[in-house]
Simulated scan of single mutants.
Amino acid sequence: MSIPAFGLGTFRLQGQTVIDSVSQALALGYRHIDTAQIYGNEAEVGQAIAASGVPRDELFVTTKIWTEHLGRTQLMPSLEQSLAKLGLSQLDLVLIHWPSPAAAVPLADTLAALQAAKAQGLTRQIGVSNFPIALLREAIALCGPGEIVTNQVELHPYLQNRALAAYARSQGVKLTSYMTLAYGKVLADPLILALAEQYAATPAQLVLAWAMQHGYAVIPSSTQAAHLRSNLDARTLRLSAADMARIDALERGERLVNPEGLAPAWD
């Protein structure tokens, strides 16, 4: 099952807020839900999924393993806890959320545990997040071709990760874009505003469509039903090659997510 190009992110959403967001999204037709152990909302996401009545085989659910659980003996028990919280017997995709800080846990150990979890049916697919080219290359070498299905990274018009995107594409690894709207910063960009008007679209729809047209999966989050519904329409918006190039020209290397002690050596 390939990664759906459009999904719902749940970063920073807690309690009833995330229950409402996931519930509304599923009712509107979202079928790809992205969460993580460190978000502290897996149980609430699972509650919303269970109450939705959407058949499990129509859903694509992703979670991410936090850094303290990357060891050979820690990873699988932590994943089993995530499954219990989510009320699921299997994930569709499990990611390494961040590389082990200072390589305290060898990547080979983490990937061996992740592949074992896949072999036991705890997840259908595996991948990584926040991996620069060097670490992605190492992960592919350790796992073999075709095993790492995605690298989830910050990617938006102001930070396009072009070298990483080119390498991932050459290896058949799909990029999943998080922070696609750059915390909302790109929504006020004069070019984005002008193009949105030209296409009779919202700025968010325009930027999400730009990312998907480049072949990236997107996982925007929202707590408002109107925005959830509006964002869905980005799936059918097609931009001209010239307008894609104009948005591409907004690149300025503006990284917004760079946590001290966690961030690797970026490309």
Rank of each mutant, 00 (worst) to 15 (best):
I219P: 06
G172A: 07
K64G: 10
I96Y: 00
W98C: 02
N231Y: 03
M212G: 12
D20T: 14
L86V: 04
E197P: 00
I219N: 04
G146V: 01
L187M: 14
D243S: 07
R162W: 09
R238N: 11
N151V: 10
E44F: 01
S23N: 04
L122P: 12
L232H: 06
V153E: 07
T73H: 13
G87H: 05
M212A: 11
N130M: 08
L193I: 14
A50T: 08
R137P: 00
L155H: 12
G184K: 15
R229Q: 15
E44C: 02
A242E: 12
A168E: 09
L95K: 01
I33C: 04
G7S: 04
Y183R: 15
E58S: 11
L164P: 04
P4H: 04
I148C: 09
P157M: 08
E197L: 07
E58N: 09
I192L: 08
M212L: 09
A241M: 07
T35R: 05
A103M: 03
V54H: 02
A108V: 10
T110I: 01
Q74M: 11
P145L: 12
G215I: 03
P145Q: 13
W266C: 03
A188V: 10
N161H: 06
A102L: 08
A242S: 11
T223L: 09
A116I: 01
G215K: 05
L75K: 04
A201R: 10
L193P: 05
A226S: 14
R162E: 15
L250I: 11
K185H: 13
A209E: 00
L142A: 01
L111I: 03
R162Y: 06
M244D: 03
L228C: 08
Q120M: 14
A141P: 01
L159F: 09
Q37R: 12
M212P: 08
K64Y: 06
A211K: 02
G29W: 10
V54L: 06
E154L: 06
